[in-house]
Amino acid sequence: MDRTLLILLAVLAASLAGALAMPAWAVSLATMALAKALVVLGLVVLLRCGLVPFGQALFFALGAYGGGMALRKLGIADALLGVAIGTAVAGTVAFLLGFLMARYREIFFAMLSVAFSMIFYGALVKNEALGSTDGFNLPTPTFLGYAPKGEEMRRTLLAYTALVSVGLHALVHAYLASPLGRAATAIRDNEIRVEYLGASVQRLIHGKFVMAGALAGAGGILVGMATGHIDPEMSYWTTSGEFVFIAIMGGASSVVAAIAGSAVFEVVRTYALQYAPQAWQGVIGAVLLLIILFLPNGLWSLVERRRKRAAGAAGEPGR
């Protein structure tokens, strides 16, 4: 069996066990990490095309607000439906914006995506019905009829988030190995050759943009459920920056890097906040600096480097 799938299964098993046995603080940390990993996973897909969206928080917030409003206003209580709606809202908007975004590359792509996220932020702040700057609280979700409260709910949500997140990671992993997924590197390396093989680079990028947007939406509503609260900050550019930060920290070589990056980020931030509440951003910055200097391909390259060395020692071809 595929090694990446084995690692994902291990992550799932550990998360489910953790949902039963971990202390409360670790449960919420793991939930946040697995939810945010979905946003980062979308970034990985785009990074492979050489595109850096600095406004991915737009879809993160869209998923949260879309799913959140459904839970609050439509009387939908089910977490599964909430996530589906959040994902669909973010994916639909990504589909529409994609017609424009897929025409741009590099800094123009990055800045245009920031622009859209900040427009949405501005709209949210002005909108009383959506709670303006305060946002709104989410009702406690139910899980296919099961309605746990408090601590029990948080543990159930971790198990649920792990299932959704790991499942989507497995799907994206399969996608990246498929011809459409492999086209990402081709687009990054040389678009001319892709077009001159009869494929549409714009359409390929559009598809990946929708995928990334939908994944960010799923991450957004899951984070909303985990914190019980949604506010415009979710669409702010610093939130986008955080996702780019995690993606670079983890690396784009494997889908597992998204989970690893998110987990490390959440742990570092938790400890930095605890021991250096005034300087936690400085700690995060220093970590990123070290990674860029010593592991330019991200944390996950540590694992892959070791694996490659092991393969070399066994006399296997390095492929």
Partner: peptide
């Protein structure tokens, strides 16, 4: 083909053809 060859530099030669087979 092109005066300046348009291939995918970060992929191996075999991968270049595989991906081409995949998308073309």
């Amino acid at each position: 083909s092109f005066q300046i060859p348009q291939v995918w530099g970060s992929m191996t030669v075999a991968e270049n053809v595989e991906v081409t087979l995949g998308i073309a």
